[in-house]
């Protein structure tokens, strides 16, 4: 377990450094790191501190948030298909964020944007859990997720199309696919508090999730309050997904892929899977963001495109396996 932890954190650190030294402007590795740490006047410091650093930080934060939320939902619902993107939580968070931007709430005060996305996400998680039920089958869960995603996406498109701003309609793709292009430290600061808060809530579920593998009755006998767990899960997930989506759009499949890959490595214990998935998610989003910059540096390829290309085949594989297990 500590070996895995060391490996994952080293992996994230390497990817973080790579993300910092890769970019369209050709700056040497040593030079760029010197500009980042030592500072000084000149464009290089500006590029490193105001453009690349926030981008790499956001990739790491958002990846960790998505991985953690995926692992927590999968553990609680005991369903490997639960991913915040797939079940419509990211979509409803995006709707909340779009409403905040278009109504001017986001401009009115600093945390307007992430809090509105949080509200959207709370409604999303709540609806999904209500529709699918605590022990709902995979099918109900996915169907509820599709319905909520479709509805949230339709409202998002409607709001953006009604906007008087001609650019707004073009942004539908950003909210659906997610991107980290041209984000700034401002975005780091508005997302960070909610991501930290939500992560603490989700990590506190660790013991409860382990107990839950023995069944609800056994968990209750061990003194685990299921009602409280459920509330913590809803608000924790909504906080991390809301904050992430507010600044980077809906990035799908990270919460699906990462827990799936790491589950065998932590001995299938959902409690341990939580922190492992946070590191794994950070690594995946950092890698995906490096990929979009290496493949098409000038085109702003959306992050969600890369994560979906990796995640969707795995999703199909999981559906296939779920079906095989059912028969």
């Amino acid at each position: 377990m500590t070996r895995l932890g060391l490996f994952l954190s080293a992996f994230v650190a390497v990817l973080f450094m790579t993300a910092l030294v890769i970019g369209p402007a050709n700056i040497g590795v040593a030079q760029s790191l010197k500009a980042l740490v030592a500072g000084g006047e000149g464009p290089m410091t500006l590029v490193m501190r105001e453009i690349r650093l926030p981008r790499a930080l956001l990739a790491m934060m958002i990846g960790a948030a998505l991985g953690l939320a995926g692992a927590a939902m999968q553990g609680y619902l005991r369903n490997p298909l639960a991913d915040p993107g797939l079940i419509g939580v990211s979509g409803s968070a995006a709707l909340g964020a779009v409403l905040a931007i278009q109504t001017g709430l986001a401009a009115a005060f600093a945390f307007g944007l992430p809090l509105a996305a949080l509200a959207g996400a709370v409604i999303g998680v709540f609806l999904v859990m209500a529709l699918a039920g605590p022990r709902g089958s995979s099918l109900t869960l996915i169907l509820a997720g599709i319905a909520i995603s479709a509805l949230a996406a339709a409202f998002t498109s409607l709001v953006l199309n009604l906007s008087p701003n001609p650019f707004a309609a073009n942004e539908i793709v950003f909210w659906m696919m997610g991107s980290l292009a041209d984000r700034s430290m401002t975005h780091v600061w508005i997302a960070l508090p909610l991501i930290v808060l939500g992560s603490i809530m989700l990590l506190s579920l660790s013991r409860g999730l382990d107990a839950l593998t023995l069944g609800e009755d056994a968990a209750a006998a061990m003194g685990i309050g299921l009602g409280r767990m459920r509330l913590t899960l809803i608000f924790g997930t909504a906080a991390v997904i809301g904050a992430s989506t507010a600044v980077a759009g809906a990035i799908g499949f990270v919460g699906l892929v990462v827990p799936h890959l790491l589950r065998p490595l932590v001995g299938a214990r959902p409690g341990r899977l939580l922190w492992a998935s946070a590191f794994g998610g950070a690594a995946m989003v950092l890698a995906a963001d490096i990929a979009v910059r290496v493949i098409l540096p000038t085109r702003d390829l959306k992050l969600g495109v890369v994560t979906a290309l990796v995640g969707a085949p795995l999703f199909l594989h999981l559906i296939y396996r779920t079906r095989r297990d059912a028969v």
């Binding site: 105001e50 931007i101 278009q102 401009a107 701003n165 650019f167 707004a168 942004e171 950003f174």
Partner: peptide, 18 residues
């Protein structure tokens, strides 16, 4: 333009402001 948009946000990016 009136009404906010993410696309126009780049013009207020701290690096551009600097």
């Amino acid at each position: 333009y009136p009404g906010a948009s993410r696309s126009e946000e780049v013009n207020a990016h701290p690096a551009i402001e600097a």
